[in-house]
């Protein structure tokens, strides 16, 4: 499958008419029949275009209806003061954006998202790599270990959150009990109830939940490293540690970088786990952009403000995604033109 993706990326034509993209269905028919090569087979071409139309339309319609329309609506709502009823009349321009950006709860939420992004990568990268290297040895129980590592990832965030919420209960939860036996006393308000600790606690639970994904992806990347390289290095007298540092990890680069991208995008949208564990509290110490916009929208009915927040969330995501592509993913191959096209595909 990987091979396939590469082939696709390499064969993409350099430029496509962007204007045509706006009206895909009509123009598909026109362009096709005008194409000089097929002039002589007009009826067959017509049939072909109808086929294309038939196959592609359902998916495009669904996406237009439930993705495109709501996104356009979000932009529209964001410039009105709208409480969810009556027509959109109270045009306020960019005032909602100003309100969101001046709202400390939102700017804190943005910071929390960034902390989670950085924290997830800083913790999970070395840990995931270590576990993947550990499991990459030939062991009888390797398959079983992989499956076990993957368990938290396939659980829903809600279920994981509810279980951890119980474990983290102040005093009577498992974690405080075990700590008490070791002579350490947990925080009086509980790990999730203390503003200074809550975000870090959420980060640890997220690490538990998503480390399995990192390990599984890294392991798959490790299988792609040819055995000959290891053998050659061993013959040259390299130690296990040298082999990992000089061969395995550099060759794993692309996998690590794409995993980092996935992790970042996931952290930006973080909602479920926070909603279950803390609801954004205590004292807004764990709000994320997503929890902010959901509580503005559904609890306070501030649809204009919530929409402005979601547009900002999207812009932040876009900026981070583009800069990640530019500065980190770029290294995967030489910066030639085919590379640029490939990046767009991701």
């Amino acid at each position: 499958m990987t091979e396939g993706v590469k082939v696709v990326s390499a064969t993409v034509p350099a430029r496509q008419g962007t204007a045509a993209e706006a009206r895909p269905r009509n123009t598909a028919a026109e362009r096709g029949s005008r194409s000089p090569k097929r002039k002589l087979r007009a009826p067959a071409d017509k049939r072909k275009n109808l086929e294309i139309l038939f196959f592609v339309t359902p998916a495009l319609l669904l996406i237009a209806m439930f993705m495109l329309v709501p996104i356009i609506q979000a932009v529209r709502f964001s410039v009105y003061n709208w409480k969810g009823f009556g027509p959109l009349v109270d045009f306020v321009g960019l005032q909602n954006y100003v309100r969101v950006l001046q709202n400390e709860v939102f700017t804190d939420a943005l910071v929390h998202n960034l902390v989670i992004i950085a924290g997830s990568i800083i913790i999970q990268l070395p840990l995931g790599l270590a576990i993947a290297l550990l499991l990459n040895r030939k062991m009888k129980i390797q398959g079983l270990l992989r499956t076990i590592i993957f368990v938290p990832y396939v659980l829903s965030e809600v279920i994981a959150g509810v279980v951890w919420f119980q474990l983290l209960q102040p005093q009577y939860g498992l974690i405080d009990t075990v700590l008490a036996k070791l002579g350490i006393q947990g925080p009086a308000q509980g790990w999730l109830g203390t503003p200074d600790l809550a975000l870090w606690t959420v980060l640890i639970v997220l690490t538990w939940k998503y480390l399995g994904l990192a390990v599984i992806l890294f392991l798959a990347g490790l299988q792609g490293v040819p055995d000959e390289l290891y053998e050659a290095a061993q013959i040259d007298g390299a130690s296990w540690w040298q082999i990992q540092r000089k061969i395995t990890i550099p060759l794993l680069g692309p996998t690590l970088r794409t995993w980092g991208f996935l992790s970042m995008v996931g952290s930006l949208q973080l909602f479920d786990m926070v909603w279950i564990l803390t609801g954004g509290g205590p004292a807004n110490s764990t709000t994320t952009m997503a929890t902010f916009l959901v509580s503005e929208g559904t609890k306070r009915q501030n649809f204009g403000v919530a929409s402005a927040a979601s547009v900002i969330l999207f812009i932040v995501a876009l900026i981070l995604a583009v800069s990640y592509q530019q500065f980190i993913l770029k290294r995967d191959t030489q910066p030639d033109t085919s590379r640029k096209r490939k990046k767009v595909r991701r």
């Binding site: 979000a74 929208g297 919530a306 979601s310 547009v311 969330l313 876009l318």
Partner: peptide, 14 residues
Amino acid sequence: LFPATVAIVPLFIL
């Protein structure tokens, strides 16, 4: 590039 979160409020209304 568009997660459901971004469009959640209009989606709910729609």
